[in-house]
Design a protein around this nucleic acid. Structure first.
Lengths: 127, 127
DNA sequence: AAATAAAATGATAATTGTTATCAATTAAGA
DNA sequence: TCTTAATTGATAACAATTATCATTTTATTT
C-alpha cells in the first residue's frame, strides 16, 4: 500500500469524529479540508482501511454503513428510535469461541455484536 | 395483518430452505411456484414478517440481506472466503445485558452476534 | 536524476439492492 | 352485499456503493 495524502486525510478526519459517521457525513467533513477529494476515493480508502483493520466498518444499520476508528475490541448499541450508535464494552467468555470452533470445525477470526433497543434519551419519551 | 396467499407462499418457501437465502435467491424459488409473484411483494412481505418477528433479517453481510426462518435465539457464522452462513448456538451471560443497561441507561431489546472466519472446508484449503 | 512500474486519484457512469407509487384486486367485517 | 383497509403486480425511482478509465502520484531501479 503506497502512501496517499487523501487516505491520511480521511483517516485523520475519521479520528476527529467521536461518533460513528456514515460515508456521506465523512465526505462532507473531508471536503471541508480538501475540496477536490472524490467520493470514490473516500469509499476506496474506507474499504481499504477496514480491510487492513485500521478502522472498522459497521453495517447492519438502516441503509448505509458507518465507520469507526476505534479498533479496540468493543461492540455497538444502536437505538431503534433515533438511530444513534454508541460503543459498548463487555466480555465474551473465551471458551465460547473455542467451543464453537470445536463443534463446527471453523476458525473464528473476528466477531461483531450489535445490541438494539432504546437509548437513555428515547427510553424516557412516551410514544 | 390480513391473510395473503403470497405471504404464506413466501414464508413456506423460506422454511424449505435450510440455508439463509437472499431475497434474490428466494425470489427464484418463489417464482418456481407462482410465476406471477412480484419482487416488490417479496420484499414487502419479508420486511413485514421480520417486523412481526416471524422471521429474521440478517444484514451486515456483503451487500444484500439474508433471511432466516429460525426465530430461536441463535447467532451466525459467516465464512469470509466462501460466504457461507451457518447458525451458531452459544450463551451470553444475562448479567451482560443488565450491566450494559445499568451503565448506559439504555434498554436492550435485541442483539445480534456475527462471527467471522473460515468454515471447516475453507480452513483446510491452501491460499 | 531519469526511467519505469505499480498504486492512487478524480470524474462520472453504471450497478445493485431495495423502496415508493399507483391503479387494480382481494380480504374481512358490518 | 357493501364498504373499507390491506395487498398485489408492474414499474419507476432511489440511495449507497462500485467500476471504468485517463491522468497523476508514489516508490523503485537504473
Amino acid at each position: 500500500m503506497n502512501y496517499s495524502r487523501q487516505r491520511e486525510l480521511i483517516l485523520e478526519t475519521l479520528k476527529e469524529n467521536v461518533v460513528h459517521p456514515t460515508a456521506e457525513y465523512l465526505y462532507e467533513k473531508v471536503r471541508e479540508k480538501d475540496k477536490n477529494i472524490s467520493l470514490a476515493t473516500l469509499y476506496r480508502n474506507l474499504n481499504k482501511l477496514a480491510q487492513m483493520k485500521l478502522i472498522r466498518k459497521i453495517d447492519g444499520l438502516e441503509n448505509s454503513a458507518h465507520f469507526d476508528h476505534n479498533t479496540h475490541e468493543h461492540y455497538h448499541f444502536i437505538c431503534d428510535k433515533c438511530g444513534k450508535v454508541f460503543d459498548v464494552d463487555c466480555n465474551i467468555a473465551p471458551e465460547t469461541f473455542k467451543q464453537i470452533q470445536d463443534t463446527t470445525g471453523c476458525l473464528i477470526t473476528g466477531h461483531d455484536i450489535t445490541f438494539h433497543g432504546l437509548c437513555s434519551e428515547c427510553k424516557g419519551e412516551n410514544q
